Structures are given as structure tokens and as C-alpha cells.
Amino acid sequence: MIKVIFLGPPGAGKGTQAVRIAEKYDVPHIATGDILRAAVKEGTELGKLAKSYMDKGELVPDDVIIGIIRERLSQDDVKKNGFILDGFPRTLPQAEALDELLKEIGMELDKVIYLNVEDEEIVKRLLARGRADDREDVIRNRLEVYRKQTAPLIDYYTSKGLLAEINGVGDINEITQKIEKAIGVNG
């Protein structure tokens, strides 16, 4: 069983690496961004609300995200194999809510993987990705929001002895191997 959070700025490679680990070890990959984008695409009430925040490069409110996570972590595949959280938590209140939720369901985190990538590399990557919300002004705003709201999680998880910092630039396979080593699974 693997219970891991992936942290890092938008475009650091969290999704790519989380999917690789999830597929290799048959662990559910829980990406809040995917869940939110699906809701936006479907035009649900949650989707419309989420879109109004996402279009400005702002974070979707905690209560909405935490509700989605609570529902997902209670499913059988998570109880059997664990989880990889990608894009959550993003703020200290979310991290604290996750701690409470994990306590409720009798699980503990194994590791928090922090993929560290410099801002200019992030801007380059996200502009190349070509999503509608990946304009340079929006990207830079997202990085600023990240620094203010998400970066404090690095200290939070370091103080709990859970953080493993990995350089998110380089060969994809080598980055995956570093993550596997940090999590304590054999590549």
C-alpha cells in the first residue's frame, strides 16, 4: 500500500510522475485538477463555480475540494491499495483537513514528494502545453498564488518528517526512480 502526496508548482510534472507510480504499483491516482476539469466540461453547478475561479488562476474553495477528496478516499480501491494525491492539499487548512480525514479512515501518509522546478522552466512548460488557461499572465498569477498558499506546505510536511524534495527537471525515468526510492518501493 502506498499513501503519497505530490506537491510542487503547476507544471512541475506532478501529474506525469503520479500517473507513472500509480500505474506501476496499481495505486489510485487522485488528481483534483482532473476531477474539477471534468465538472467544468460537464457544466455542473460545481463545474461552473470552479471555472469562475480557474479562469482567473485562483484556487477553488476548500470545502468543495475537501468534499471531493473525502468521497474519493472512502472508495474500496483506496482502502485496498492506498492513494496518490496530485494537486491536493494546496493550503495549510486543506492539509490539516486531510490529516483529520486520514485519522477518521485509519490511514497515515507514507511520504510527501515535492517536485521542485524553477519558475521560468514552469512558464516554458505550461506555454508549450497549450491549454486555454495557460496564458503567460495566468501562469504567472498561478505561480504567485502557489507561492503564497501552497509553498508553506513544504515546511508543514518537513516538520512532520514526511517531505522528500526531488528536482523536477531532467530525465523522466530518473525522476521516477528518485521518487520510488523516496517512497521506499523498488523500481
Rank of each mutant, 00 (worst) to 15 (best):
G47Q: 05
Y146D: 08
Q149G: 09
T91A: 05
K124V: 04
A164Y: 05
D86Q: 08
V117Q: 06
T158S: 10
E121W: 00
F6E: 12
I122A: 00
G168L: 06
L98N: 07
P10H: 10
T150L: 09
D99L: 06
R37G: 07
N141A: 06
T91N: 03
K51G: 05
L163P: 13
D76G: 01
E42N: 12
I166F: 03
G47R: 07
D133R: 02
Y157Q: 11
E58R: 06
G8L: 05
G87R: 04
L153H: 07
V123W: 02
I5R: 11
K160I: 08
K24N: 06
L126Y: 00
N116K: 05
V145Y: 05
I105N: 09
P89G: 11
S74V: 01
D76F: 03
L98R: 08
E104T: 10
I65Q: 04
D110R: 03
R125G: 00
L59G: 08
K41N: 13
I105Q: 11
D26P: 00
F88T: 13
R72A: 15
G33M: 08
V64F: 15
N141S: 09
M54L: 12
I154T: 15
L163A: 07
Q94G: 10
V4N: 06
I66V: 15
D62N: 12
A50T: 12
G161E: 01
R72G: 15
G11S: 09
E23L: 01
I2P: 01
K103I: 00
E118K: 03
R147T: 14
L49F: 12
A22W: 01
N173G: 14
L46D: 11
E120I: 00
E104Q: 11
G184A: 11
A12K: 00
I21K: 00
I2T: 05
E121G: 01
G13M: 02
K79F: 06
K51N: 11
V60S: 15
R37I: 12
L115M: 06
T32P: 12
Q75W: 04
G11Y: 02
M107F: 11
E118A: 06
F6G: 14
P89S: 08
G15H: 04
P89F: 03
V4R: 06
L126R: 01
R147M: 15
V112W: 01
Y157N: 12
I21T: 00
Q177D: 15
K124P: 01
Q94F: 07
D76S: 13
L126V: 02
G170W: 06
E23K: 08
N186V: 13
R20S: 11
